[in-house]
Design a protein around this nucleic acid. Structure first.
Length: 962
RNA sequence: GCAGGGAUGGCGGAGUUUGGUCAAACGCGCAAGGCUUAGGACCUUGUGCCUUAGGGCUGCGAGAGUUCAAAUCUCUCUCCCUGCACCA
């Protein structure tokens, strides 16, 4: 039995003593592999094992391929999460504390986590410990934390230079805002971690008749303005008259407050709903005068508290009017104008995008397609005035969805156009003509509440610093950088291209959090995705700075200018900074050596932000020869079919998995268990399967001495052939980071082959040894500890981690040998089949197969077969003829294929003598299998009536019973 | 809404770039047999449907098309997933 813990500790110690992973520049070709470093608010879990196991596997592979490989590591602590975390601990947040218990964090440590610094320190220690325990091949000398003052100097340099190049700009920006704390509010700052979803909508001005005051009707659907029959307000809401940027409006008191964060708002006084209901207002487009009516569903806390009513297309408006009528309210009798028609004729398409799940099998009949709002209510059996709001809400969404997708305008300036075009066009037109203005709202269905219990609003921040990723020249440069990057998986290339075009202004400083001070507004901190775009540079000289006792103050921008950008010279930098000149030169050499070939890897969540910003910053700040060379994106880890998440409570801490199953099996499952970009599954059954297979390989290794065959037989050539084709394929796959492909071949298929070899009586020690050694070498990147152990059990005294990846010997690959072996196998299947079927024949009842004859097809059949496969025409082949073969014989053979003539493909078959010899040498085995005498014959020499059925890929079989 | 990706057996997922050798890799599950005091451990075999000679039929979201031939190419449609920024 393999004792994982024991071998892991043993080999980790050996690697460390041999300093295998401490890489320094040398004459070899370099590659530096970096992975997005972890945020330090939890110990590592299985997802981390995937994210760091993937580059570690590749690093180990490249090392075996002869590269000088650097795999460094660091920790990310800047930003607000750790601070928010400390606050939550202080508030005794139960969810968080439960999550920490899953990770076995002791209560006394949790108690100390009211201090953000302590949290960072605690988890950094914990993460490093577990990463080491899992056996990652990291050069730990270069580790750093993004909050270190030394590191901040690199970030400062980055921002000085971004500003020099004109990439930093100032402007305004809408942001979730807590009016109580006067702070920007992100997901981490809200109750239940809700992301404030900011949306821009349009408020259309309906001017009161004979006055200068307007009703600002907030709407998502300005294109329905042609069908407005009235305005709705809510009689239970407080309204005010207020000046918004100089113009006067009726709006809810709450709206006036919220808008004050976006416009200059001056409240002139309150106005009662009853007074409002007496007013009439003018539709700015149709110039129709419409009344103001009470709308029960209108909320003062959403939008402006004033809405326009379009009963023909808005279910809520329709229902509200019906209710008013039912109450005897004087509702003007006007036509409900249909404005939008679905492309399907007669609105038959209503409800076509609704799923059965949504409808729960209950579809009402649509009776009024001429009033779409009513039609949707009817479809949902919600057409009565007493229908509940959930159903109306759903009807609204459905109407909006279908009209947006399939709707064509019937009226107005955009008549005949698609609904989205009309919506956007009208919005722009109305704003331009001064008949509307835009406001920002929170689109979340429920109120977004700050952790301080205050309702969040949208604020427009002024003088905000941005990095201008929208700069066209910069984008162009990034596109050209990206053209030189190999992306794994390659299918993500297109996604990256579109993201480079899409990314725009990015706010880069904020008021709170840990991190580097923003040089141009030192009261603010550099936002923590912006401060981690070029940190990989720091790995290349971190340990040199440390051993030379360099202080943060000495790391002036000129140091980085020289090291990274070759500006100035070492002597003057030494003089300016006081750093030893030799050390400066070493930093530069190290940077240039490692940075000329880098690979960057992360999870999919970082693609649209970090990885894109990474490329932009490299393009802006580094000389072209140091641009990134490869970018890798790997998927996440699911747990037994479900997404792993703290809220589901199914997070598997990395330490637990490693402890319970061993680092290597878990690593294999998580890293090689799925294609690079797809999620992989943490599945205990699969894990046990891996452990069992390791035992199998180990048992073959330990019993190697008992294998004593000397002569090379057919099956030995077969195993050599399999091995060498496997090496070529696996090498190619790993070069492209198709780790799963490679290891399905290397691992699972090897086990099948080893079993087959033994089953077929393979017994050559040298062949087996060659095979097992190569297998062990190829297993080393993914299961490094097990590979070391196997290597030594094979009698080797070196370390696998320092060995070379095996080379394929192409001459050992013999397709004929492999094809013949496949033929033997399928012939055995066929024989079983035939015996099963013929055994049922009455004449054979009670008898057993005594002689089984295998008849190998004549050589000429290959030619005939391929002629047929090429032309798909039997008579053409027959009339062409084959030398020394009668037309009758030829057509009889070809007619065997008449039914599937079109699916034949030209094939290289082994020679018939070769096939014959292959079967002869397998005779003993087949005989044992069936307990009958096996004869192998050539078709030309056979007297069997079934001989003619033999085809090049399938010998004929005759079973005789006795 | 905008952008990107996807739909294949009981499940996870190969195969799609370069149409044929694909009832469909590999893994899991399931079934039978073996081993065993027992087993949720392990081994072997099987796992769409039909079949008295190794065969046939049906199948890769839906529909249509191109082709001798389509999971793979073209068109239309439906549904699903992810991201959308100050947040790491």
């Amino acid at each position: 039995m393999i004792n994982y813990k024991e071998i892991e500790l043993k080999w980790q110690k050996a690697w460390e003593e041999a300093k295998v992973f401490e890489a320094e520049p040398n004459e070899k070709e370099s590659i530096m592999i970096t992975s997005a470093i972890p945020y330090v608010n939890s110990p590592p879990h299985m997802g981390h094992l995937r994210t760091y196991g993937t580059p570690d596997t590749f690093a180990r592979y490249m090392r075996m391929r002869g590269f000088n490989v650097l795999f460094p590591f660091g920790f990310h602590a800047t930003g607000t999460p750790v601070i928010g975390y400390a606050k939550r601990i202080a508030n005794n947040d139960k969810d968080l504390i439960d999550a920490l218990h899953v990770f076995h964090v002791p209560d006394e440590d949790i108690a100390k986590m009211v201090d953000p610094e302590y949290i960072a320190k605690y988890f950094i220690k914990q993460q490093e410990k577990e990463l080491r325990r899992a056996g990652f091949g990291i050069d730990w000398r270069r580790k750093f934390i993004t909050t270190e003052p030394m590191f901040s100097k690199l970030v400062e340099w980055q921002f000085y230079r971004l500003k020099d190049k004109g990439y930093l700009v100032q402007g305004t920006h809408p942001v979730g805002w807590c009016p109580n704390e006067n702070n920007a509010v992100g997901q981490h700052d809200t109750l239940h971690d809700v992301q404030p979803d900011i949306e821009e909508i349009v408020a259309v001005k309906f001017k009161e008749s004979g006055s200068d005051v307007s009703f600002p009707c907030a709407t998502y659907r300005p294109e329905t303005i042609y069908g407005v029959t009235n305005i709705f307000i809510n009689t239970d809401v407080e309204y005010v008259i207020a000046k918004v940027d100089g113009a006067r409006y009726y709006l809810s008191k709450d709206a006036a407050f919220r808008l004050s964060f976006q416009y200059g708002v001056e409240v002139e006084g309150a106005i009662t709903p009853d007074e409002l209901l007496k007013k009439k207002a003018v539709n700015p487009l149709t110039k129709e005068e419409v009344p103001v009516l009470p709308g029960y569903f209108v909320k003062g806390t959403v939008g402006t508290g004033v809405v326009m009513s379009v009963p023909s297309h808005a279910p809520f408006d329709y229902v509200a009017l019906e209710r008013l009528k039912a109450q005897g309210y004087a509702v003007p009798d006007v036509e409900y104008k249909k404005l939008i028609e679905l492309r399907a004729p007669d609105n038959k398409g209503i409800g076509r995008t609704v799923t059965h799940e949504e409808l729960k099998g209950k579809t009402g009949q649509v009776l009024h397609p001429e009033i779409p709002a009513l039609a949707y209510l009817e479809l949902l059996n919600a057409a009565s005035p007493s229908a509940d709001d959930t159903a109306i809400e759903f009807a609204t969404k459905l109407a909006y969805r279908e009209e947006a997708r399939h709707g064509i305008m019937l009226v107005g300036a955009y008549k005949g156009k698609k609904e989205p075009e009309a919506r956007d066009g009208l919005k722009a037109d109305l704003v331009k003509s001064g008949d509307a203005f835009t406001i920002y709202i929170l689109a979340n269905s429920d109120d977004v509440v700050c952790r301080c219990k205050t309702k969040v609003v949208v604020n427009i921040v002024k003088n905000q610093w941005f990095i201008n990723y929208g700069d066209q020249a910069w984008k162009k440069q990034v596109h050209s950088l990206f053209a030189g990057v190999k992306v794994y998986p390659e299918k993500l290339r297109h996604t990256f291209e579109t993201l480079i075009d899409w990314i725009d202004l990015r706010a880069t400083e904020r008021a709170q959090g840990l991190g580097t001070r923003f040089p141009f507004a030192p009261e603010h901190i550099i936002e923590s995705l912006s401060d981690s775009t070029i940190y990989m540079v720091y790995y290349t000289f971190d340990h040199i700075l440390r051993t030379n006792n360099v202080t943060p103050e000495q790391l002036k921008p000129e140091f980085f200018d020289y090291v990274i950008d070759s500006k100035g010279d070492s002597a003057s930098v030494a003089k300016l900074t006081g750093i030893d000149e030799m050390a400066i030169k070493r930093c530069k050499e190290s940077f240039e050596y490692w940075y000329k070939n880098t690979m960057r890897q992360s999870g999919p969540d970082l693609v649209p932000n970090h990885l894109i910003m990474y490329m932009f910053n490299h393009a802006a700040l580094l000389p072209e020869k140091f641009y990134p060379k490869r970018i890798v994106v790997n998927g996440m880890v699911d747990y037994e079919g479900e997404k792993m998440s703290k809220s589901l409570g199914n997070i598997v801490p990395m330490g637990d998995g490693v402890e319970k199953y061993g680092s290597d099996p878990v690593r294999f499952m998580v890293v090689a268990g799925a294609e690079l970009e797809t999620n992989t599954e943490f599945n205990t059954d699969a894990l046990n399967g891996i452990i069992a297979r390791n035992e199998f390989i180990n048992s073959v290794v330990s019993s190697l001495d008992e294998v004593r065959g000397m002569e090379l037989e057919h099956i030995d050539y077969w195993l050599y052939s399999k091995l060498n084709s496997k090496i070529s394929r696996a090498t190619l796959a790993l070069d492209e980071m198709r780790i799963r492909d490679a290891y399905t071949d290397i691992y699972y298929n090897s086990i099948t082959e080893l079993k087959w070899y033994s089953e077929r009586g393979g017994r050559n020690q040298q062949v087996l040894r060659d095979y097992l050694e190569a297998l062990t070498l190829m297993m080393a990147p993914i299961m490094p500890h097990v590979a070391e152990e196997l290597w030594h059990n094979l009698g080797r005294s070196t370390m696998v981690v320092k060995e070379r990846w095996p080379d394929a010997t192409p001459s050992m690959v013999n397709e004929s040998t492999e094809a013949i072996e496949d033929m033997v196998r399928s012939t055995i299947d066929d024989i079983s089949n035939v015996i099963e079927l013929t055994g049922k024949i009455p004449a054979n009842k009670g008898k057993k197969p005594s002689v089984i004859t295998i008849i190998v097809a004549s050589e000429w059949k290959k030619e005939a077969y391929n002629m047929l496969a090429k032309g798909h025409d039997i008579s053409a082949v027959v009339s062409h003829g084959i030398k020394d073969v009668s037309k009758q014989e030829l057509s009889k053979f070809l007619s065997l294929f008449s039914k599937r003539i079109n699916s034949l493909v030209e094939t290289m078959f082994p020679g018939s003598d070769e096939i014959y010899n292959g079967f002869v040498s397998s005779r003993e085995y087949i005989q044992k299998k069936f307990g009958a005498r096996i004869m192998v014959e050539k078709e030309g020499e056979s007297k069997s009536p079934r001989a003619g059925r033999a085809t090049p890929g399938k010998p004929s079989i005759e079973v005789v019973y006795a």
